[in-house]
Amino acid sequence: MSGIALSRLAQERKAWRKDHPFGFVAVPTKNPDGTMNLMNWECAIPGKKGTPWEGGLFKLRMLFKDDYPSSPPKCKFEPPLFHPNVYPSGTVCLSILEEDKDWRPAITIKQILLGIQELLNEPNIQDPAQAEAYTIYCQNRVEYEKRVRAQAKKFAPS
């Protein structure tokens, strides 16, 4: 494992614990031996107030490669969400998460999670990743928002 990646992720964890947006979660997972795995984080993004996503808490896994922060983490909703920019596998399609697009090593975990929260309610229809959600979003916004509200209710924190 890269010392650069681990040191950056340790800084990220410290900064997150000191200050993070209300309702968001970002925690490194534990290895079988109980030690912390900084390369694999369990996160959760709350649906934004005043949107059909409100009330939901959407679980996301963030996986970092050894060359982080040169390369972005892979962000994957578990379980996958109904959304035009979420692949059926759950992987998020967002330009700041793509090395050859808008990724920059200075982007923080907090910025990534806030960017994904923004994307939930403002899909990028130029870059669809899920045919069904994309089609319904474009053709029947009322039905799309109904499905999103049902999903938010399903993923409401207990």
Rank of each mutant, 00 (worst) to 15 (best):
K154Y: 09
I125T: 09
T108E: 14
P52Q: 11
G50R: 13
N140Q: 13
S2T: 11
Y68A: 04
I45T: 10
E78F: 04
D33Q: 03
E99D: 15
G55C: 12
A26Y: 01
A156G: 08
K14E: 02
N124S: 06
I107R: 06
L119Q: 02
I45K: 01
P79Y: 15
F24N: 05
S89C: 15
I107G: 12
E118R: 11
L119Y: 14
N85G: 01
I107D: 10
W41A: 08
W53M: 04
G47Q: 06
R141I: 11
I96F: 04
E143D: 11
P72C: 11
R8S: 02
G3F: 11
N85I: 03
Q117F: 12
E143G: 09
G50W: 05
G3T: 08
S7Q: 09
I109R: 04
Q130K: 03
Y87K: 03
H83F: 05
P80I: 07
I107M: 13
G56F: 00
M36I: 09
T35S: 14
L94A: 04
M39H: 09
K49G: 14
K59I: 10
L9M: 05
A15F: 12
N124D: 01
R8Y: 08
E145V: 13
G50L: 10
G90T: 04
R147C: 11
L60A: 12
S71D: 15
W16D: 00
E42R: 10
T51H: 06
Y137E: 02
L63P: 01
P28G: 15
A129I: 01
A15E: 12
A131G: 13
K110P: 09
E132Y: 07
Y87I: 08
G90V: 00
K48F: 10
A26C: 08
C75S: 12
L6T: 10
L114S: 12
M62C: 08
V27D: 01
R61N: 14
A131S: 14
E12I: 01
L119C: 05
F24A: 03
F77P: 01
P72Q: 09
L57C: 12
L63N: 11
D67F: 15
V86L: 04
T35F: 00
M39P: 06
W53D: 04
A131H: 10
S95W: 06
E99S: 11
L9R: 01
K59F: 13
V27I: 12
K18N: 03
A133C: 09
P80S: 10
D66Y: 08
P105F: 01
V148Q: 02
P80L: 08
R147S: 13
R8H: 08
G34Y: 04
R149D: 08
P80F: 12
K154R: 13
F77S: 01
K110H: 09
E145H: 03
A5L: 09
K110V: 10
G3H: 08
A5Y: 13
P73Q: 02
R147G: 04
V27L: 13
E99Y: 14
L113D: 03
A156F: 11
N31S: 11
G115H: 00
I109P: 04
Q139I: 07
R141N: 13
L60C: 14
F24Q: 02
N40Q: 07
H83R: 00
P79R: 15
H83K: 04
K49M: 09
P80W: 14
D66P: 12
I45H: 00
P46Y: 07
G34M: 08
P80G: 13
E118P: 05
E122Q: 12
P72Y: 00
W16F: 09
R147L: 14
Q126Y: 10
Y137F: 09
Y137A: 01
P32I: 13
F155K: 06
C138L: 07
M1K: 05
F24W: 05
I125N: 08
P52M: 10
K101Q: 09
N140I: 00
P88A: 14
P28V: 06
T108S: 15
L9T: 03
Y87M: 08
L9D: 15
R13I: 03
E42V: 13
D102A: 13
P73R: 03
Q117V: 06
V148L: 06
P123F: 01
K14I: 09
L6Y: 14
W53G: 00
Q130Y: 06
I96R: 09
G50S: 12
T135D: 07
E42P: 03
E145N: 15
D102M: 12
E143K: 10
Q126D: 10
A133M: 01
K76Y: 15
Y134R: 00
R13N: 01
L9H: 01
C43M: 09
Y137L: 06
L38V: 09
C43S: 10
P79S: 14
K76R: 14
F22P: 03
M39C: 09
F58A: 06
F155D: 08
F24E: 07
R17I: 01
S71G: 15
N37E: 14
Q126E: 13
R8G: 01
E12D: 00
P73I: 08
K59G: 08
W103H: 06
A15P: 01
C43P: 07
N31I: 09
Y68N: 01
K153Y: 05
L119W: 09
N37W: 09
L57I: 10
D67G: 14
A10T: 11
E54K: 08
K74I: 15
P46W: 02
P52L: 09
V142A: 11
P28C: 01
L9W: 06
F22C: 01
Q11K: 11
E42T: 12
N40K: 12
L114G: 12
I45G: 03
L38T: 09
G55E: 12
D102N: 08
Q117Y: 09
P157Y: 09
K74E: 15
R104E: 05
F77E: 03
W103T: 03
D33G: 02
P157T: 11
S95T: 09
P28S: 05
I109A: 12
Y68K: 00
L57E: 12
D19V: 07
A131L: 11
K154A: 12
P32S: 14
E132L: 09
Y68H: 08
S2K: 05
W103D: 01
A44C: 04
L114D: 09
Q126R: 14
K153F: 08
I45D: 04
Q130H: 11
K14F: 06
W103A: 01
D67K: 07
D19A: 12
I4S: 04
Q117D: 07
E78L: 10
Q139C: 10
Q130W: 13
P123A: 06
L81A: 06
I109G: 05
P128G: 13
C138F: 08
D100P: 09
Y87T: 05
K49T: 08
M36L: 14
A131V: 13
I136A: 11
A44K: 15
G56I: 02
E99W: 08
G115F: 01
A131C: 13
V25P: 04
K48A: 11
E143Q: 11
T108M: 14
D66K: 09
I136N: 07
M1V: 10
I107W: 01
G115D: 01
P46E: 06
E122K: 08
A150W: 09
P73S: 05
A26S: 10
L120W: 06
P105I: 07
Q11P: 11
M36F: 06
L81K: 03
F22Q: 03
G90C: 07
F77V: 02
I116S: 11
K14Y: 06
L120G: 03
G47D: 05
P52W: 11
R61A: 10
G56E: 01
N85V: 05
K76C: 11
I116G: 05
E99R: 10
H83W: 03
L97W: 09
T29W: 04
H83Q: 03
D67P: 10
Q111E: 12
L6M: 15
K153I: 15
A152N: 09
E78C: 07
D100L: 12
L57F: 08
E143M: 12
F82M: 05
G34D: 10
T29M: 12
M62F: 14
E54L: 04
K30A: 09
L113T: 11
C93A: 05
S71N: 10
S7Y: 07
D67L: 07
F82T: 04
I109W: 08
P123M: 01
W16G: 02
E78I: 10
Q151V: 02
T29E: 13
S7A: 01
P32T: 13
P46T: 06
P21G: 04
G34H: 14
R141M: 15
M36S: 04
E42L: 06
E132G: 11
G34A: 07
E118Q: 09
K110T: 05
K14H: 05
D19I: 04
I116K: 00
F22R: 00
